[in-house]
């Protein structure tokens, strides 16, 4: 029983304080795309270049020929729920920007629904808290697609029914 409880805590160790602790800015002009991020490590950190001494983390992450960034409800404290890991996987499995653009929303929706349904069973109080706060998140991808700068972002939000709403745009 204790093992099961520990597993549940590990699986759903969200920290609500860490839902919004990032600023990302995307600018698209005729000639260039600019993507910027702050670097403060807040709450959790499982990514690259984590320097716990000065609480700095690189929030613009390179995978193959693309860069991605994320903000909002994206991971829990022990990273058992991790949108960045999911995005990393999708980029590695689909090398082409157009393929990634097509597949990422499906992966995200399945992942979020699956996680929320587990959360509803194993941690109903946290599940209710999320439904009250209705948090969401954003994933941004940028790259150089066929010698043309390209940016893509997908936004998701937990809606009141406990389902997930997704919107995305390619620029």
């Amino acid at each position: 029983m204790i093992r099961i409880l520990l597993l549940i805590i590990m699986l759903f160790g969200f920290s609500s304080k860490s839902i919004h602790a990032t600023i990302l800015v995307l600018v698209v002009t005729k000639n260039e795309i600019i993507l910027a991020a702050d670097s403060k490590l807040f709450g959790v950190g499982d990514l690259t270049k984590d320097d716990s001494n000065n609480h700095v983390i690189d929030k613009l992450i390179n995978v193959n020929h693309l860069y991605y960034a994320f903000a909002g409800l994206t991971r829990n404290d022990d990273s058992s729920f991790s949108i960045p890991s999911l995005v990393h996987q999708v980029i590695e499995e689909h090398k082409n920007f157009q393929e990634i653009k097509g597949e990422l929303p499906k992966y995200l929706e399945d992942y979020l629904k699956n996680h929320l349904s587990k959360l509803e069973i194993y941690n109903p109080s946290l599940y209710k808290e999320l439904l009250i706060k209705l948090p969401g998140g954003t994933v941004i991808l940028v790259g150089n697609e066929g010698m043309a700068p390209a940016a893509y972002f997908v936004e998701y939000k937990i809606i009141s029914s406990g389902e997930v709403s997704l919107e995305w745009e390619l620029l």
Binding site: A21, I34, D38, S39, V142, M147
Partner: peptide, 24 residues
């Protein structure tokens, strides 16, 4: 934008600002 955010929410966002430029 990010500097304004750092001033407003110093406990949650912070320096350095990382900036990526993509051109053709």
């Amino acid at each position: 934008v990010i500097n304004q955010g750092i001033k407003k929410y110093p406990d949650e966002v912070g320096l350095p600002i990382k900036i990526l430029r993509i051109t053709k």
